[in-house]
Design a protein around this nucleic acid. Sequence first.
DNA 1: CATGTTACGATAGAATTCTTTCATAAGATG
DNA 2: CATCTTATGAAAGAATTCTATCGTAACATG
Lengths: 241, 241
Amino acid sequence: MLVDQRRQQLLEVVRSRGFASLPELVEELQVSESTIRRDLDHLEESGVAKRTHGGVFYAGPRPRLPDFDERDPAQWDKKRLIAQRAVKLIEDGDTLLLDGGSTTYEVARLLVGRPLQVVTNSLPVANLFAAHKNSDLVLLGGYVYPRTGVTLGPHANEMLARLNVRRTVLSVAGINERGFYNSNLLLVETERAMMRAGEETIVVADSTKFGHQSLAHLAPLKDVQHLVVDNEIAPQWRTKL
Amino acid sequence: MLVDQRRQQLLEVVRSRGFASLPELVEELQVSESTIRRDLDHLEESGVAKRTHGGVFYAGPRPRLPDFDERDPAQWDKKRLIAQRAVKLIEDGDTLLLDGGSTTYEVARLLVGRPLQVVTNSLPVANLFAAHKNSDLVLLGGYVYPRTGVTLGPHANEMLARLNVRRTVLSVAGINERGFYNSNLLLVETERAMMRAGEETIVVADSTKFGHQSLAHLAPLKDVQHLVVDNEIAPQWRTKL
DNA sequence: CATGTTACGATAGAATTCTTTCATAAGATG
DNA sequence: CATCTTATGAAAGAATTCTATCGTAACATG
């Protein structure tokens, strides 16, 4: 059947460009506008593309992980601010270890393009640096935790035991006077290995994390050299640090 | 300046969704259509977004690796056909090892959603499986080779030495009577480790690879159990296999 | 070979979006 | 404080796209 072949071709065009206008597609496939429209209806029905006024954009399985961007926009601004402060602590030429939290991801976004050696266990972070010439990228191996796209487990930890970096940047889920917490036991174990691999640890966290603890204890306060937060932090904490 | 902040916000919305319609943006940012239009003009001028009839889509630095899709479309159809044949060799529940070639990538695309345990050293392939519930994913660690987004080097090889899989799927750059070839010495070394880790090796290659050799010898013909090719293969080869 | 199905292109009128222009407001600048 | 620049919202007419409908052609089916 010629129909399916054309639709396949259509989908490929859309997928490769991300977006295609209707006249473009008419020109490219050499069929009438009506046909294109009908094909697009089918593609939309099957969920792999979305129509808009004037064209379609690809909506199929993207090579993309947890969309950090979909979260509460209020936290989002905070995270951006924190990230902006955190990157000031990082110098060109540094060897860096980045973990997989959403705030760390923002830090990574700001670092793309700078001359760095980056080690990470986060697939989204790796994607940021992978195509860039200025930075070297080392990926930690291991089992990929589906929800956040980070590698965990013994493979990652063993690999970390053989690495040495200048600075480690970590996200946490909770902070109280006894130290830092995260919500996943395997993750905490990998993060501890990350701290051991780095000379200096930078923790990034927004103010909502303060006073909460979480499932797994990561490290006492004294083991972290820098803590970057937003300015809505309660005074009681400010004085403690 | 409030303007820049709004444009930043605008860009973030566009980036996170891939595409946004004009009315959507008006609603979201609570400014007039005219303002949105003007902002979009600026964003387009700076090259990070592209306008279309009815909206904008993101065109900035994508967290995306070498786009296999941009290649010669003629080879492309071949690769898809090869991939379709290759997936028939793979059973649900298999433990699979996938490397990072463009044909392997097509195989991976067809496998997404099936219940499998996947091990890979390819970032693009990992992105396909990372968010999917049906399959487990293990990523090989190591230095990320920028051009293709695969992990190579001693870390990857050591990790492979401790893994066992049912089937290994490899791409190659050349095939002749002495065996299989690829273009990168580190890559070949990792691929040899992959073959050792798997009980059965499947090589996927289009007909243009036949008769050519490449920089590094990978393995003799007899070490590979299945070879999947397209149907434009010369008769002299067909008889040999 | 009559009949039903599906694919295709064309077209008209409705709906949406785009461009251009104008008026106002808010800051800079001297 | 007058003046200039920049940002903003509103609106009209032009341009584009969308929806719905029709007639034709290709093909399968009985």
